[in-house]
Design a protein around this nucleic acid. Sequence first.
DNA 1: TGGCATTGCTACTAAATTCGTAGCAACCTA
DNA 2: TAGGTTGCTACGAATTTAGTAGCAATGCCA
Lengths: 118, 118
Amino acid sequence: MTNDIPLPKPGSAVRGSQSGQPIMVLFDLLSRRWAMGILWNLSDQNRNFRDLQARCDSASPSVVNTRLKELRAVGLVERADDGYSLTGDGRDLFKRLEPLGDWAQEWIPTLAAASRDD
Amino acid sequence: MTNDIPLPKPGSAVRGSQSGQPIMVLFDLLSRRWAMGILWNLSDQNRNFRDLQARCDSASPSVVNTRLKELRAVGLVERADDGYSLTGDGRDLFKRLEPLGDWAQEWIPTLAAASRDD
DNA sequence: TGGCATTGCTACTAAATTCGTAGCAACCTA
DNA sequence: TAGGTTGCTACGAATTTAGTAGCAATGCCA
């Protein structure tokens, strides 16, 4: 075996789920800053670095770049002539992420209402 | 002012999506360390603090506690006689998260295979 | 009543990640 | 050839996480 790292952990360090449960490995990857935001923003069209950065709340270029490297390393994102794009797997994953968008739209209002009476 | 924070941001600081897009607010909250792992582990049954901690790769108690406070603050988790449990909203969110589990199970193997030939 | 184990959580330092900003090399484009 | 754009590296400061120790409260049992 040439490679037996705890999978994701592209950037190594602090993180790295030991449980071995696939979902935890995925959570580990997706919970890195802007990982989901990048996938989300690439879902409707390819985007170049600066565009992506702007759409991710002007995240610092180092984070965007690191995340792009990781997402490419695990085959969810790839380079395209016009910037970056989701791979087949990336689109597949996005489909499972998409429902969160609808839910968030219903949830945020209730959250806002609730936090008004603390 | 009693409360005008950019919603989630329960612990404030570094994070806090400005875009205002609900999905980004949700991603912001969920991408905090172990947030999704906690929701996931509470989905099948209530669990006490130490059990939860153990299931989250023995995450440090400070992180687990901080996350629990945040998740309770936004009404996704609540205390129960036998530990912590998901609220109605929490279960609702979990339903949208669940598909990721199936996807992860199919994806991890391909990831492992791909990383063998670096 | 006196251990003793379990549980929830606080404290604190070190390590890692993220932020924010500056800036450069490679490409257009006029 | 003088901008303007784009992709990305550098780097110090600010935050978050990790790891570990430990304490107060509660439950159980002899």
